[in-house]
């Protein structure tokens, strides 16, 4: 395996993510790698199959930018706010391009990552019983328990070409640590062929924290330092969730032209905005 190294966000994305890749950008509300997604948009990496339990605003942006061919997911809303309008527009009207979906439940998606991380072809769960979801995907089936005879759901393993996550810290060797709500990131990272981690900061020494998830450098392909790279999601200890932005996204994303203008203004004009945003929010967090 290649020696992990610290790269710029631009170079890490260019080297690890290619057209037509299957990409998982995980982070369950917390630690969502927005900056990396914006870099994908700036580089125009397209025909992607995107995997994520909760597509959230991050995939709404990638879908609206026209880079996504297929979405594998389990809950596609703007949490606490309403619809993801770019996602809906793509599914309902094929704008800016048709979007194929492979749809699951959260339990199914979580177990698909577990199978992928475990090197198994599928995972077993008590799920999907009586739901029509199973009838619309070829990645859910059933298996009979050889010990009890119980029929259980089987879900196909997820093995993304690339998993992208955001973490609080890495050291100079590329060992990574994240904490707080760590969601399904460990499984998503270990299920993938390549792993890109953006971090709030690179530190001289990584001190393991109780409850923290550590990914050793040899399990990570590339690390990029991107302070504030989860905004409008957050990084516990560094920033707070920008709920105002999630609420504002409803109006921004509802209209195609407003969305396009937003992309031009906030994504295509470069990554410098993240640092300013980060300092502002850190000051706010400290003030609370």
């Amino acid at each position: 395996m290649a020696v992990p190294k610290i790269r710029t966000l631009h170079d890490a994305v260019a080297e690890l993510i290619h057209d037509a890749d299957t990409v998982a950008m995980e982070g369950f509300t917390h630690l969502i790698p927005f900056a990396a997604a914006h870099e994908v948009i700036r580089q125009g990496i397209t025909d992607l199959t995107l995997v994520r339990m909760t597509p959230d605003v991050i995939y709404d942006q990638l879908i609206g930018a026209g880079l996504v061919k297929k979405l594998v997911f389990s809950w596609g809303g703007n949490p606490g706010v309403g619809s993801l309008h770019r996602f809906r527009d793509a599914v309902e009207n094929g704008w800016p391009r048709p979007l194929e979906v492979d749809e699951h439940s959260h339990a199914g998606m979580a177990n698909r990552y577990v199978a992928g991380a475990s090197g198994l072809p599928f995972a077993v769960l008590r799920g999907y019983r009586g739901s029509e979801i199973a009838s619309r995907t070829d990645t859910v089936s059933t298996v009979t328990c050889p010990f009890t005879g119980e029929e259980l759901a089987a879900v196909a393993a997820l093995n993304p070409d690339v998993t992208v996550i955001h973490a609080q810290q890495a050291d100079r060797e590329g060992n990574v640590q994240l904490w707080g709500l760590t969601g399904v990131q460990k499984e998503a990272a270990l299920a993938a062929e390549r792993v890109l981690v953006t971090v709030e900061e690179i530190t001289d020494e990584l001190r393991p924290r109780p409850g923290g998830v550590v990914l050793p450098s040899w399990a990570v392909t590339a690390v990029a330092e991107v302070p504030g790279g989860a905004h409008p999601s957050y990084a516990a200890g560094y920033s707070v969730r920008d709920n105002d932005f999630y609420q504002a996204w409803d109006a921004i994303s509802r209209d195609r032209d407003t969305f396009r203008s937003w992309l031009d203004e906030h994504v295509f004009k470069g990554e410098h905005s993240f640092k300013g945003e980060h300092s502002r929010r850190t000051e706010e967090a400290a003030a609370r």
């Binding site: 809950w75 809303g77 619809s83 599914v91 309902e92 439940s105 959260h106 739901s131």
Partner: peptide, 9 residues
């Protein structure tokens, strides 16, 4: 299009 299943099933 609605959000989907989430954890509900």
């Amino acid at each position: 299009r609605l959000p989907g299943a989430g954890g509900a099933p």
